[in-house]
């Protein structure tokens, strides 16, 4: 494969909390290669943001190493800073200034002369379609416009690798699709992209490879296809009458069969992970018949990344995010 632009070895970061020392990142190993879009997934509080903050030199790890764009983030933070772009969840565009002023200042802070910075700003204004509003005060921007400026700011220094932290959170579907297009365009122009997300469909649509983090550990890594095949196989989802009463016994029975390799239950639906969905579905129906359980719905689906997550961690990414809180 291509050249490595990011390499993390045995990364550990502790935080002090009321209950003592917490390992927010607990032995993470990762490698990202030049030119790819790498997805970093996980629920809030899993260690995703902490890892990202170490990679972008905002935090220092307690042990392990992180080499980004050829430099150690702990020993040579300024060298790393010169070579990365970072778009935080909050964005980072400065409200009281115009888009263009934001861009030029960003360039100057990287050491560019005013004219070089203005030239680069102009390129990015075209690349990210900011022409219409580049000279307006940022406070007047819509969510989508602001997001594009945020991304442009991250690109001012022609970074070797661009970090995007939850880039589409809070965007409407149209703006999300728009940003996806922009991100793909950046990749085609040779930018390596490291993005965190908790939208699995986003990771599926954009990323060549991805890693899933939970409780500070990487629990799965590979291409979206590999992950789907490896963990889950096909997924049969059933819901039954009198679910609360009958489900526990049924699940026990299903777990004893040899064609079902995992069962997940979330109060209304039972998910069965099987190798071959088509033959398994008739066997499942037989069992339900024998047990005289009335079926409400049954669906067979190819596994999504959500299934992968559920399979690897035992909890659904969506459930966690619904109640999740970022520290």
């Amino acid at each position: 494969m291509d050249q490595s632009v990011l390499e993390i070895k045995d990364l550990i970061k502790y935080f002090h909390s009321r209950n003592g020392l917490v390992k927010a990142v607990n032995g993470v190993n990762l490698e990202v290669y030049s030119g790819e879009i790498f997805g970093f997934l996980g629920p809030n509080g899993a260690g995703k943001t902490t890892t990202l903050r170490i990679l972008t030199t905002l935090l220092k790890q307690d042990s392990g190493t992180a080499i980004v764009a050829g430099y150690d983030t702990k020993k040579d933070p300024d060298q790393v800073r010169c070579r990365i772009g970072y778009v935080s969840q909050a964005g980072g565009s400065d409200d009281p200034a115009t888009g263009r002023e934001n861009l030029i200042l960003q360039g100057q802070l990287y050491g560019m002369s005013t004219s070089v910075a203005a030239g680069r700003a102009e390129e990015l204004v075209h690349l990210l379609d900011l022409d219409e509003f580049a000279n307006r005060i940022v406070r007047t921007y819509s969510g989508g416009q602001r997001r594009r400026l945020d991304v442009a700011l991250g690109l001012m220094n022609r970074p070797t690798i661009l970090f995007l932290d939850e880039p589409t959170t809070g965007l409407d579907p149209q703006n999300r699709a728009n940003l996806w297009t922009q991100i793909r365009k950046l990749q085609q122009e040779g930018t390596t992209i490291f993005l965190t997300t908790h939208y699995l469909e986003e990771a599926d649509a954009l990323c060549g490879r991805l890693a899933i983090i939970d409780n500070g550990h990487i629990i799965a890594e590979g291409t979206p296809e590999e992950l789907k095949k490896r963990g889950a196989g096909d997924c049969i989802t059933i819901s039954i009458e009198d679910s609360e009463e009958k489900a526990p016994a049924l699940i026990q029975l299903l777990q004893q069969t040899d064609f079902i390799h995992d069962v997940q239950y979330d109060t209304t639906h039972i998910r069965l992970y099987v190798k071959d969905g088509a033959t398994a579905i008739s066997k499942v129906l037989d069992i339900l018949n024998q047990q005289q359980i009335v079926l409400i719905t049954i669906t067979l689906s190819a596994p999504s990344l959500d299934d992968v997550f559920l399979h690897e961690t035992g909890h659904s990414l969506r459930d966690i995010n619904a109640e999740g809180q970022e520290k």
Binding site: T56, T57, L58, D78, R81, C82, I84, Y86, S88, Q89, A90, G91, G92, S93, D94, D95, Q106, L109, Y110, G111, D150, L153, N157
Partner: peptide, 16 residues
């Protein structure tokens, strides 16, 4: 305000 809008963090990721 500027911490909240991410401006400070953005500057801190540059060699400023």
């Amino acid at each position: 305000d500027e911490v909240r809008t991410g401006v400070i963090e953005r500057f801190r990721v540059t060699p400023t």
